[in-house]
């Protein structure tokens, strides 16, 4: 099929529009990256420069200590808190959603599901305030454990698992029961093996979401010793007379691992987030 000239013009227009919008969306990343390598004075004299004057990693040793804590502590906290809360989230939510889907009739299960749904509707930053009181009462303030436990529950994780378990045909499980399989056997031999891909999706999305968390971590922490990278970035950004180049370098450290992970697994992440949202 040959294209008419008006179609070609339309096509050029469409690409121009999509291209300009995409570049505007990507520009902040480029600016952040370039600014991390340019001395603050150079940025002030020419904020638009597209490439740094020279590549110089000394800024990362300059921000080696922030707020009295070593940079690597924040990195370690980010990895530890995000990793463990993700693991916990997948295990706890998979088992919980499975039980609620299989036996919604059991006493208390309906209440639990509604309780969960109300909790996730509650404005997050306002839920965190009473959570502070709860953490205080449980003696978990200032601990990694308190942060990890709080970050283990999330709506999208629950909806993805619930949707997946609902789609398992009832006949498969009934056949196993007739064959004399126990509930534990059904879970470990039949359900969990087929749930491996969805668990990977949930783990990936939880990791991305929890890496970005800052408010619950700030609230539960008693000192910067339990801060993750985003919280450290926020407190550095709030200081007066801030070190602009240092802020950009820390922003790069906070963003880069997540951007790489996302680009490696983009299909799974985008499809998972879309279907988790459609269910909710």
């Amino acid at each position: 099929m040959r294209m008419r000239p008006s179609d070609i013009l339309l096509r050029i227009g469409a690409y121009a529009a999509a291209g300009v919008v995409s570049l505007v969306f990507l520009y902040p990343y480029w600016w952040m990256l370039v600014s991390a390598f340019r001395p603050t004075r150079a940025i002030m004299s020419n904020p638009l420069k597209l490439f740094p004057e020279r590549i110089d990693f000394s800024i990362f040793s300059e921000i080696g200590r922030i707020g009295g804590v070593d940079l690597w502590v924040y990195v370690w906290n980010s990895v530890l808190i995000t990793g463990l809360s993700t693991l916990l989230s997948v295990v706890v939510t998979a088992l919980g959603a499975y039980a609620l889907v299989r036996r919604p009739d059991l006493p208390g299960f309906r209440f639990l599901r509604y309780g969960f749904l109300v909790a996730i509707m509650y404005p997050y930053m306002l839920l965190v305030i009473p959570v502070y009181i709860v953490m205080f009462k449980l003696g978990l303030l200032g601990s990694h454990a308190g942060i990890i436990l709080f970050l283990a529950l999330g709506p999208i994780q629950f909806f993805l698992f619930e949707q997946f378990f609902r789609a398992i045909p009832g006949e498969v499980i009934e056949a196993a029961i007739i064959d004399g399989a126990s509930e534990a056997q059904i879970l470990f031999r039949i359900v969990l093996p087929v749930a491996a891909p969805i668990s990977a999706t949930v783990a990936l999305i939880t990791f991305l979401l929890n890496w970005s968390q800052w408010f619950p971590i700030l609230i539960v922490s008693k000192s910067p010793d339990t801060y993750t990278l985003p919280v450290a970035l926020l407190s550095m950004n709030s200081e007066l007379g801030s070190n602009f180049q240092g802020i950009m370098a820390l922003a790069v450290l906070t963003t880069l691992p997540i951007a790489v992970l996302f680009l490696l697994a983009q299909k799974r992440v985008m499809e998972g987030m879309a279907s988790g949202a459609v269910k909710g």
Binding site: F25, P28, W214, T255, F262, L263
Partner: peptide
């Protein structure tokens, strides 16, 4: 698609700081 979705998974604190 990626250009528009990348900011969604970017830590919001980092994005807003920039």
């Amino acid at each position: 698609r990626l250009a528009l979705f990348l900011p969604v998974v970017t830590p919001d604190v980092a994005g807003y700081v920039v």
